[in-house]
Nucleic acid binder design. Structure first.
Lengths: 355, 355
DNA sequence: CTGAAAGCGCTTACAG
DNA sequence: CTGAAAGCGCTTACAG
């Protein structure tokens, strides 16, 4: 805006770009001090090291020139950048929206959030970790990993695991108590008299999905419910609908009266496919999911779901990572965020809604 | 995994971190060549400059040591990093999920996507741009900006604008034809006989929302429809529901028979609040939105919406930016992605669904 | 309290 | 075809 006006002569950054860039050396010259002094002042380490007079001169020069510390230079020198990498396999799930913005907020202004979008078909492996490591990130936030991914992290990597039940491996973690939520759901379905339940799993290999399924199945078994699993799809309404449509005839024949999706998005697919097939929900079939997305109160019928507070997860993870980075100490904290069943009309005993 | 085992002695990276890091110098030593040769080979510039023998030696050494070029070093030297910054105000909107992953895919393996999450209350300004610029990004992807944000970009910045109708300002852009979609929606509502329509706008200041509203209002006016605007909320179901609830008595009194939300999420809020208030949709009130999110086919009733293909938007933007970065030439391309009305039951003339 | 200098890891003219 | 060397911008002991 300001001093870029006459730069237009060279709008295409040449090989050694940097036109228009204000460096610490320029600030030093402007303030009549050394670059060491500039660095100390700008990084807030001037306390008792730089005279008030010089501090002010530097600050004024910084202001005047619009100086911002260059990340490449400081990263090279300090050994780590201000970037925090969030590794998530499946950000298509709206579950991540709030997680991301809360993590961002908890991290504070000193860090930038880099999203490493694996994509459902391209799970993060050791090679991608190595590539990310070359960015010298200040830390990692790793959501819903599997054991392989955790093993690929070099020891000493500053990382916080999110929603990684059973995978701590010496790293701080923030977990959702999905097992408890799954058990609550099994209990709820047992209460409604269901005896055979279909389970629509994820095709993504992550510990959290395994725990959801196993905890549900185990509690269900104790309550005399048989769980039919084996069906799985991506976190995608249409894929889930298709998978349900394929599984339904078999489940129907087996006497299934309820279907649980491993995410709400899976459950939406079931809801849609059931409507299409003329299977009344909850009259003929009860449906439930995990996440309790904002949409789930508004589906038809409103969806019963295990509430997983993604915002809290992101926020706790951001805070923990920041403590890890700034404290420097080997914080091995394990936060557990509770989950809780939200019963709505999609699993109501009769046609009347409970919601 | 490999050579980190005995690093455990110093798990907390000291001041001059880098323990366990493989550098080009180490590769050079291993291969018996200079770092210049390593750099040339690794960056694929060996063609006709490095002997086949040396090329192979370097490749073998890289393999053996697990060398990855350090970003900080190469950024400092080249002037730009492999990071592409996506600036988006409101990633809570599921609209972004597909946009992000498609943009990521189009960018290819050479770039990382950094998400700059402004958050609805913290819009990106000149200072944040300066901070992002200090990362020396290879380029910017800027979604739904306002004029101020575009003006804050120093000339010469490699950037592609997304969904920024009327804001090109010399930058390549990928736009959704939201005006056309808005006009189609107005036409559709006129067809159904509506004469007074409430418009639920966004509180976010972005050109795309202004264009949606104005295009809708203008076409509606030509068709003899009066549009009542002034209501606005964030892209949040509950906030939208609340805003609708406040606006409804006035709109009702004024004879409003249809409400348009500037996003589907706004429309979901209207749907929820209308159900709560016992206002029949579409019987008493027609409802429509913009985005055509995957959920919109599954709301009750299914939502009429102007389809905005976010995946295409992200993919086209990623491709354009890549061309801009790699071509180096001043590409000033303007891609326009069409939008199209998807009519569903929420605006059906009678109680029967069209879907 | 302050500055000169080394060093972080890379890339790229340059000289051979 | 190859290597020695300069330089990108910063931070941090170190000497004063």
């Amino acid at each position: 805006m300001d001093r870029m006006d006459d730069d237009a002569a060279n709008p295409l950054p040449g090989p050694r770009a940097g036109a228009g860039r204000v460096t610490a050396a320029m600030v030093a010259r402007e303030a009549g001090v050394s670059t060491a002094t500039v660095s100390l002042v700008v990084s807030g380490k001037a306390q008792g090291r730089i005279s008030a007079a010089n501090r002010e001169k530097v600050q004024a020069a910084v202001e005047r020139l619009g100086y911002v510390v260059d990340t490449a230079g400081s990263t090279l020198s300090k050994g780590f950048s201000p970037v925090v990498v969030l590794v998530a396999t499946d950000i298509a799930n709206p579950f991540y929206a709030e997680l991301i913005s809360e993590a961002r907020a908890a991290l504070g202004d000193r860090y930038e959030l880099l999203l490493s979008v694996g994509g459902p078909r391209r799970q993060i492996d050791a090679a991608s970790i190595r590539k990310l490591l070359s960015l010298r990130p200040a830390g990692f936030l790793i959501d819903a990993p599997n054991a392989e991914l955790v093993a690929a992290l070099p020891s000493g990597t500053r990382a916080v695991l999110l929603d990684a039940p059973g995978l701590q491996g010496g790293l701080p973690s923030v977990n959702l108590d999905v097992a408890d939520g799954a058990a609550q759901l099994a209990l709820h379905l047992a209460d409604q008299g269901h005896r055979r339940v279909g389970y629509l799993d994820s095709t993504i290999d992550a510990a959290t999905f395994r725990v959801r399924r196993d905890a549900f199945r185990d509690t269900a078994a104790e309550l005399g419910i048989e769980v039919l699993d084996g069906a799985a799809s991506l976190t995608d309404i249409d894929a889930a609908a298709e998978t349900f449509t394929e599984a339904w005839p078999g489940w129907d024949a087996a006497g299934v009266t309820a279907v649980v999706g491993c995410t709400d998005t899976h459950a939406y697919g079931v809801l849609g496919a059931a409507a299409e097939a003329g299977v009344a929900v909850p009259g003929r079939l009860a449906v439930a999911g995990f996440d309790d997305l904002p949409y789930s109160r508004h589906t038809s019928p409103p969806l019963t779901s295990v509430s997983l507070p993604s915002g809290e997860l992101g926020s706790a993870a951001g805070r923990t990572l920041r403590a890890l980075i700034e404290g420097g100490s080997p914080v091995t904290e394990h936060v557990e965020v509770p989950s809780r069943l939200v019963a709505r009309a999609s699993t109501a005993a009769v046609q009347g809604a409970t919601d």
